[in-house]
Design a protein around this nucleic acid. Structure first.
Lengths: 207, 207
DNA sequence: AGCTTCTTGACACCTGGTGCCATCAACGAC
DNA sequence: GTCGTTGATGGCACCAGGTGTCAAGAAGCT
């Protein structure tokens, strides 16, 4: 065994923090998968993780948050991918790649654990969680809209195109995600995404 | 004045029920417009309407409900309009008319009172209300999707088109509504709706 | 008048969520 | 090794949304 560094990059407290966060998440997902989101109280989650209710809320802003955290990065990933696509690329292609970043995050996580699939199904089937998910989507849409406007040199305040294009892309994402969830992961996300964007392309690339 | 019928179509209790509901709604909107959604407690609304908190929850399922009720009919209206459009009409036209039913409900209410506009602005600017609004939209999307599938003779379980088309129509609705709200009702909803559907038509009518 | 039905207010209760404070372990300086 | 600081924790009181229950009262019917 090699020795640990004298001045560890991550301190003891930071590692413990990560540990507690993981245990809380694990406990929450396990309980919710078994009894449903509403039937599981925060007290029960905290107890299962061996901490107090008060501590739970120091890690997660709400009971929904512990589930919806999984989606946090997807928005940033999509936005970054869109910004990185070549400017000459047609909008339908650029947006398809952006959406695929988010879908791939789900599909990859599902490959080796099925965890992502279960989380997505939990979200889509629980009204409170679906509402949070839709709020995230609305935010992503704003972000994709400003980026699309920038790419096309349009003014998002006067042109309808940026918001419509971003919205259409997220409708594709939502539709594909739902199909993937309803089929228990059987359908191929990549193929579904391609089909969805093929249908939307005439509008995205017009003008 | 003509006499009232001996066996009134609406009983005393029913009229009082409507009265209490109206007073609750009025009190809620007035307080929320002044102090914001979160700052107004259900107790305060009930007190302003002269009833108890318990009674409030006998009329509305939640604090959000008292505001979002305004949107309840729009979904049914859109669905009915879509079902009533001639079968030969291109999808973009049929969906545009369906969406216009919902937009018109907002625009008309705004003409003579400005009430609809204020409610829409309150909804779009309050996260909790916007989430509920998005949930309604998700439901409308399901309804429009099955109706679109029926019109085109498609299977909503295998074809992506119905859900994508319905989603695109609602993206148009959402975009127009937001523009209308952000401009304080200055922009013409009808013109915006036409522009939005003109952009989406190439995808909606393809194939 | 007497009976039924609907509505209401009051009360207790559960749960999500926050502010506050005392406590204890980890870390650094001497 | 000791001391002070920092950060995480737990417990507690508290607020607000929401529900079950029950007794009381008004409206309507016979």
């Amino acid at each position: 065994m090699v020795g640990v560094s004298l001045r560890p990059a991550v301190t003891m407290a930071q590692r413990k923090r990560q540990l507690v966060s993981d245990e809380l998440t694990e406990a929450a997902l396990q309980l919710m998968a078994r009894e449903g989101f509403d039937a599981v109280t925060v007290d029960a989650i905290a107890a299962a993780a061996g901490v107090s209710k008060r501590t739970f809320f120091r890690y997660f802003a709400s009971k929904e948050d512990v589930v919806v955290r999984f989606l946090a990065d997807m928005g940033a990933g999509m936005h970054a991918e869109l910004a990185a696509r070549p400017a000459a690329e047609p909008p339908s292609t650029a947006l398809r790649h952006a959406v695929w970043v988010a879908m791939a995050a789900c599909a990859d996580g599902a490959e080796h654990s099925g965890r992502a699939l279960r989380v997505v199904q939990l979200i889509l089937r629980t009204p409170a969680l679906r509402a949070r998910f839709l709020e995230h989507q609305a935010q992503w849409r704003d972000d994709l809209a400003v980026e699309t406007a920038r790419r096309r040199g349009l003014d998002p305040e006067t042109d309808l195109y940026p918001r419509l294009a971003a919205g259409a892309a997220l409708v594709a994402f939502d539709t594909v995600l739902r199909r993937w969830s309803d089929s228990d992961g059987a359908e191929d996300p990549a193929a579904l995404t391609d089909r969805a964007f093929a249908l939307l392309a005439p509008a995205l690339d017009a003008g």
